[in-house]
Design a binder for these strands. Structure first.
Length: 109
DNA sequence: AGAGTGACGTGGG
DNA sequence: CCCCACGCCACTC
């Protein structure tokens, strides 16, 4: 593991932790905030290692508001359950009224 | 060391 | 509007 990579991961976690209750954001938005807009995939990769941290990975979806990462959670609908318990309406793995619950770190942070 | 993969995003046909 | 191709970069085989 390269130190710089760990730093990147750490930054992703830091941002993810600051996502307000009942809000969601996208991998691309986080990547952009970190100055790595071209590496949105790395954000997803970072979330891969967020297991066990205090990172609400369920609040991070792709730019369509689709729960692309639900397969990485336990069960088949845990991610959706978590979001709905926070007041976010999710239907068929997709966040409804996405724009309203979207939280942009580069603007809000 | 080369090739394949992925919790993404953008752009062209 | 749907489908495909490419870029990106860390990680695995």
């Amino acid at each position: 593991m390269k130190p710089e990579t760990l730093n990147f991961f750490d930054k992703v976690y830091e941002v993810a932790k600051q996502i307000p209750y009942g809000k969601v954001t996208s991998y691309g938005a986080i990547a952009k905030y970190l100055g790595a807009a071209r590496s949105a995939r790395m954000v997803g990769y970072a979330m891969n290692g967020s297991h066990g941290k205090d990172v609400p990975a369920h609040r991070v979806v792709n730019r369509n508001g689709l729960l692309s990462g639900k397969h990485h959670f336990e069960g088949t609908n845990l991610m959706q359950q978590l979001l709905e318990s926070e007041g976010v309406v999710v239907i068929d793995n997709q966040v409804q009224n996405f724009k309203a619950v979207f939280w942009d770190p580069s603007e809000e942070l």
